[in-house]
Design a protein around this nucleic acid. Structure first.
Lengths: 230, 230
DNA sequence: CCTACCGATCGGTAGG
DNA sequence: CCTACCGATCGGTAGG
């Protein structure tokens, strides 16, 4: 009887692995096809899964094992793609900000010949889509978990956030000049973005209010005010 | 030479305690005076310290050892006062909500003979004070860490939150009826509270904008709108 | 409220 | 990307 029998090939698959795999997976490591090989598939899968988990459970309460399991990896494997859990958090935020920036820039281009009111309506609507869309967990994560970043990461993200906020300023300035917006532009920007961002706390896609309804209400609240008649 | 000498009174104070205590404390366990005895001193100290730590580091990233050290206890001692870390979180939130409710009720009583605009201004101002005051960490914690509560705790808190939100409704309805507020009342309430709540993200007491400035800007934004002249 | 400790978990790593 | 594991930490507890 052998004293040492490491890695016996007949050893049964541990139950915990069967729990994580819905269907039997083929034996051995998956072959890398031409489409599959190191083109960032797995890396993107990791930060997308991380984004969803960070959003629903919070950064500190999410384990790297959760993330690994979500994409069918073993516990140590995420560290092959990301140096640390922190790097994963940063990737989630950075990818999200870049996507949001691109969408808002497209919105501004699409509405550049319209009135400032229409431009604001476009920014508000796109912001709601970015915030509340099914696959955009990035922004809520960014808004809630920034304190877990390193200073250098925070700086990089701050620059992206400034870019994003600055997209709003010319529109708000125009509306301030035309009298549609009464509050000072800087504070108005902060309060408006806050009102929109907070919707991640209460928006329920199953309720009756749609993103369009929200956009209408926001516009009415911010720039649809009446004459102060008393 | 005695084998067992538990609680030897000559035993030196462990260095870790000296680090936490700015001044030398009297030897032995502190005597309980009439004022001191179990009147909730230590319990309140714990949830107040927990509130500050949960706010700055987040619930999951704060250890019960952090909390114990902040009030000069040993690692296991918070569990003498609270059944679990979870119970501490709940205490922070509940105490905060009750304090906020009391302050807003006082505001409404103080302004009950004034115009709805003045009443809203009072609610906004008090809300900012509750949010941004030096000793009110409770609300930000509540807003960010609710997912760590048990369902029963969440229910209790939801009831308090509903009470708080309902304080705003009559005022907003009056302003809607008078034409000062254009957006639907329910969505307006959500957007307005969101705009205010978000200020915990960016408000800096060392910057020039005061809570009064914020209140003015918020009023201008929500109910100070101009005629839509184009 | 302290002491001493447990059981579990977790981020991360060496080596393949 | 997996295996096997470490070092540290953490919530919580027994007993006093």
């Amino acid at each position: 009887m052998p004293v040492l029998e490491p890695q016996s090939p007949q050893r049964p698959i541990p139950p915990v692995l069967l729990l994580n795999a819905e269907v039997k997976r083929p034996r051995g490591r998956p072959r890398k096809t031409a489409q599959d090989r190191d083109d960032g598939n797995r890396r993107a899968a990791l930060w997308q899964a991380a984004g969803a988990l960070f959003r629903s459970k919070g950064f500190a309460a999410t384990t790297t094992r959760d993330i690994a399991a979500a994409v069918g990896m073993q516990s140590g494997s995420p560290f092959y793609h990301f140096k640390s859990k922190d790097a994963l958090l940063f990737a989630v935020m950075e990818e999200g900000m870049r996507a949001a920036l691109a969408r808002q820039q497209a919105t501004l281009e699409r509405t550049q010949d319209q009135t400032p009111l229409a431009q604001l309506r476009g920014l508000v609507h796109t912001h709601f889509l970015v915030l509340l869309g099914t696959q955009s967990d990035f922004i809520p994560v960014m808004l809630y978990e920034s304190r877990s970043l390193t200073p250098a990461q925070r700086d990089t993200l701050s620059a992206l956030q400034s870019q994003y906020e600055n997209l709003w300023v010319p529109v708000l300035k125009a509306l301030h000049a035309s009298g549609h917006l009464r509050a000072p532009v800087v504070l108005a920007r902060l309060l408006i973005l806050g009102a929109l961002n907070w919707s991640v706390q209460w928006f329920d896609p199953h309720k009756k209010a749609s993103v369009d309804d929200l956009s209408d209400a926001a516009m009415a609240l911010f720039v649809g005010g009446s004459v102060a008649s008393s």
